Each structure stands twice: as structure tokens, then as C-alpha cells.
Simulated assay, not measured.
Amino acid sequence: MRILHLGDVLGQAGRKAALEALPMLRNRLSVDIAIVNVENAAHGFGVTAKICKEFYDAGANVLTTGNHVWDQREIITYIDEDKTLLRPWNFPEGTPGQGDCVYVTPAGKKVAVINMMGRLFMDPLECPFAGVNRLLGKYRIGKNVDAVVIDFHAETTSEKMAFGHHCDGRASLVLGTHTHVPTADSQILPGGTAYQTDVGMCGDFDSVIGMKKENSIQKFMTKMPSGKFEPAEGPATVCGIYVETDDATGLAKRIEPVRIGGRLKGSWPNA
């Protein structure tokens, strides 16, 4: 199976680049499932129903989010209707929406997608390690699903790496989102799980994690409020991860970073 996951889409620049790239990526990589993190897609803060539809129309099958999922208030009433728009699973019981789903590919393969959020320097949610144990008991590769993909939306590299090793052998792919900077550690862990600490963002990298740099610099220098943060609007880099799984085991046999456009050095899966 061929899996594509695009990192945090940030603002108009990132959204435009990702929407333009997604059909091409699906076609050239013969993707079976495309997942996109859209938590910053609406002017850098949250996502709307209209933006979700745009990504589905462009070829996304499942949309993930993170701590900014509720920034656009309309999503609170919409998210229960959209079963492939996920919010972190470990929000409190009764929170609108869902944190996991199963997508069935056109070939009939079942892919469980899980959205989980870390706790270090983040909201004090339910333990993601205990939570994912419950879900990986529910979704078992080779038993009732053909692959498991986990978007772990977290701040620190240590928590992400520990989480990846915790899931090793039980998930096809564990990738980090949230920090917006792509890490250079794409690998297949000893148990067969593809892993990267952070997939990066779809946004303008002439910025501070996607936002115009002037306000961020002023805030760091003065420790004073520096005005409203606005997304950078220059040419965007589309950052993602491409994974191939073994049909017999559901575990990874290949992982490659994808980076196209914008300021970052490009990266494309080797033939």
C-alpha cells in the first residue's frame, strides 16, 4: 500500500500550494490514501467546512488536526458530521468529533487513521501512550485492518520519539506534526513502523514557523505583546511523507520525505 501524509497546512500560501500539489502527488506516486493535517489551514488558525471540502476535492481522504482544531468556531458543529475530519483522540469524553476512523481504499484495503496529541508543553489531556494502547488493541494489522497510520501532534522531540518506539510493530506509520519544521530522521524502526519526528508544514518558510517574522522577533526581543500574528504569504514549500507498506504484514518497507516548492531543498521519493 502507498500512503501520503502532508504536514500542517498553514494559511493561504500553504493551502494553495498543498491543494495544487495534492492531485499531482496522488497521480505520480500512485497513492492509495492521502492524509493532510489541516489544523492551521484557515489563515493560520483552525479549519472551516469549506476548506475541508477543498481538500477532499483535491484528493485528500482523511484530515487530521491538533491543538488549534477549535480556533474556527463553526467547526464545533460541523466536525460531528464529517467522519474523516479528526481531532486528537485524547480530548475529554464528550468533546465533539472523533479521533480515529477507518478509510477503505478503492481496492478494498482498510486503513485505520489515529490522531493523538502529546502532553509536554501542551494541554493536559489523557495520556496518549495509554490511549494508543487501547486503539492498537482495537485496530490490529493483519486482523481487522491492513494498515495503521498515527498523526502524533506534539511539541517535544523526546515525547514524539518515545511514542514512535512505543507503537513500533503495531502501526504502519507514526509521524509527528505541530512544530512545522521537517526533521531529518525518517526511518523504519526495528519492529517495522515507519517514523519521522516531524513531517514539517505546508507553508512559507521565510517566516517563524509559518507566521510573519517581524512580530515574532519583536516579541522575543521585548517580551511585550507584538500585535496579531499573520501567516507569511510568500511561496510555500509542501512537506510530506511517503510510505510503502508490505501487503503481507502491513508494516513499512519504505519511507521517503517529500518537499516541493518554496525555499527548502527539494526531496522526492527515489524510483
Rank of each mutant, 00 (worst) to 15 (best):
D80R: 11
C52M: 07
T84L: 13
N90W: 06
I76S: 13
I76R: 15
D71E: 08
V62Y: 05
F91C: 12
R73I: 04
N90Y: 08
L85C: 10
P88L: 06
D57R: 04
H68R: 02
E54L: 04
E54N: 06
L63R: 03
T64I: 01
E81C: 09
L85R: 07
N90S: 11
E81A: 13
E74I: 00
E81R: 15
E81I: 04
G94P: 15
Q72S: 03
G94H: 14
N90F: 08
L85F: 14
T65L: 07
N61I: 01
W70E: 07
E93M: 13
Q72C: 03
W70F: 09
A58I: 00
R73M: 06
L86N: 12
E54R: 05
A58N: 04
I76W: 13
V62P: 02
W89Y: 15
N61K: 02
E54Q: 13
N67L: 03
T77H: 15
E81G: 12
E74F: 01
V69H: 12
V62T: 06
R73L: 03
K53R: 03
L86W: 10
F55E: 07
C52I: 08
I76F: 10
G59T: 02
F91Q: 13
K53Q: 08
G94I: 09
N61D: 14
L63S: 07
L86D: 12
K83F: 04
Q72F: 01
D82M: 09
V62C: 03
P88N: 09
F91M: 14
G94F: 12
L86M: 08
T77K: 15
F91K: 10
N61H: 11
W70S: 10
A58D: 06
T64Q: 08
V69Q: 12
D82A: 12
T84G: 01
A58E: 05
W89D: 15
D80F: 07
W70R: 11
E54S: 09
G94A: 15
N90P: 12
D82P: 02
C52E: 11
G94C: 15
W70G: 05
G66V: 05
N67V: 00
K83V: 10
D80W: 12
A60L: 02
I76P: 06
E74R: 03
D71F: 09
P88R: 03
V62L: 04
V69G: 05
A60V: 01
T65N: 11
W70N: 10
T65D: 08
E93N: 14
I76N: 12
T65P: 00
Q72W: 02
H68P: 00
